[in-house]
Design a protein around this nucleic acid. Structure first.
Lengths: 176, 176
DNA sequence: AAGGAAAATGAAATTCATTTTCAATTAGAA
DNA sequence: TTCTAATTGAAAATGAATTTCATTTTCCTT
C-alpha cells in the first residue's frame, strides 16, 4: 500500500479526476468513532455483546481502512494485544460483513480481503501486479454502461466485480 | 447451465445483440479436432508426451466448452473412464492453461473454473445467482472505457476481470 | 523389436486459507 | 449478585489446490 492520497484531511472527502472519483480513505478519527457508535448500537439492538476484543479489532480495522486480510489484521493487532486470537479477528470481520459495516472481496491472489463500507460505497479496483497496491475508483459512465449491457441480456444486476490487473504509474516507470 | 444458445451451428460463429457480442459456444466437432491437433503439435514441440488420458481429458474438455471445475470435469470423465484420476485431470487443465489453450477463472464461489480459449478471446461474465448459469459477453465500448479510466490513473492494464452477479431473464421472471 | 531415459500417472499425502468445535470465560439482564 | 446466553481462543476440521513418490508409459535410440 504505497500510493499517495491526494487529500488526507477529512472533508471534503472526494477528489475528482476527470469523471473518475478516487475515493478518500477513512482513518479520520471523527468518522471512526462515529462508525463505532453505529456498530455498538447495532450490536445492542441485535442482542450481541460488546466486548473489549471487538472494540480493539473494530478500531484497528476502521483505522486501517484498507483492503486487508483477516490474517494481516490479526498480525497488526497481535503486536500490541497478544491475547486476541485469530479466530476472534476472523469472526469479527465476518460479523462486520453481515452487519453491513464491511465487505469481503476475493481478488485473484485467492485471499479474502475486508474493507470498511459506508452506505453509498460501490467502487472498482486497480490492482498493481508490481507493488500489490490496490487503488479504487468510481465511474458513473461505467455504471451506466454496465446497466445497459445487463438490460440487453434481460439480466438484473445485484452486484458486480470489476478489477483491472496491471502496473501503476510508479511500477510502470520503474520497469520501463 | 440451462440457457439457450442463439446459434448452435458452426459458422457464422458470433451473434450480435446491439453492440454486445454473445459468444458462440464451441462443441463444433471440426473445431474440437482442429484444436486437438494444435495441442498435439504443441506438446510434441515442447517435448511432452501425448497419452491416452490427455487425449480423453482434452476431448471432453473441449466438447464441454464451458466454465468447468477440475472436479466436475473429472466426474464427467470418470463415469466412462474409471481409471483416469483426478490428479491427471487437474494437471491436464493446468497444462492447457500454461500452453494457452485454456484459462483459469476464479468466480465469487471460490472455485477455479477452466474454459477453452481461442486466440482472440477476451470477454466478461454475467453470473446468475438463481440457476448458476454463466453467460459471456464482449463489449467494445466497455473495453474503450476501461482503457480510458486506467489511462487517467497512469495505470497500464494487463488483464481485467468483470463479473455481474444477479438474475437472468428466466430466474427474474420466475421469482417476480 | 528391445532397451533405456524422461515424462506421465494416480493414490495418497500435504498445504494453506477458511471455518467449526468445544471448553472456559465474560457481558449484561434479572 | 446470580444466571444465562454470547463470546473467546486454541485446536481441530474442512475443502480446494497442489505436491510427492512409486509405478507405468511413451517414444527415442540402438
Amino acid at each position: 500500500m504505497n500510493f499517495i492520497f491526494l487529500d488526507r484531511t477529512c472533508p471534503p472527502r472526494l477528489t475528482f479526476i476527470m469523471e473518475n472519483r478516487r475515493r478518500h480513505k477513512p482513518a479520520c478519527p471523527r468518522k471512526v468513532s462515529e462508525k463505532k457508535e453505529q456498530l455498538k448500537a447495532f450490536l445492542r439492538q441485535k442482542g450481541f455483546k460488546s466486548t473489549r476484543q471487538r472494540d480493539i479489532i473494530v478500531t484497528e480495522f476502521l483505522k486501517t481502512g484498507e483492503h486487508i486480510t483477516a490474517e494481516d489484521l490479526y498480525r497488526k493487532i497481535n503486536r500490541k494485544n497478544r491475547e486476541i486470537g485469530f479466530t476472534t479477528v476472523y469472526r469479527t470481520l465476518k460479523l462486520l460483513t453481515k452487519s453491513g459495516f464491511a465487505t469481503e472481496r476475493l481478488f485473484a491472489d485467492n485471499l479474502t480481503r475486508y474493507e470498511p463500507l459506508s452506505a453509498e460505497d460501490h467502487h472498482d479496483h486497480l490492482i498493481c501486479l508490481g507493488c500489490g497496491s490496490i487503488m479504487e475508483f468510481e465511474n458513473l459512465k461505467m455504471e451506466r454502461l454496465q446497466k445497459k449491457i445487463a438490460d440487453e441480456f434481460g439480466f438484473c444486476i445485484i452486484t458486480h466485480k470489476m478489477e483491472f490487473y496491471g502496473y501503476c504509474r510508479e511500477c510502470r516507470d520503474k520497469c520501463g
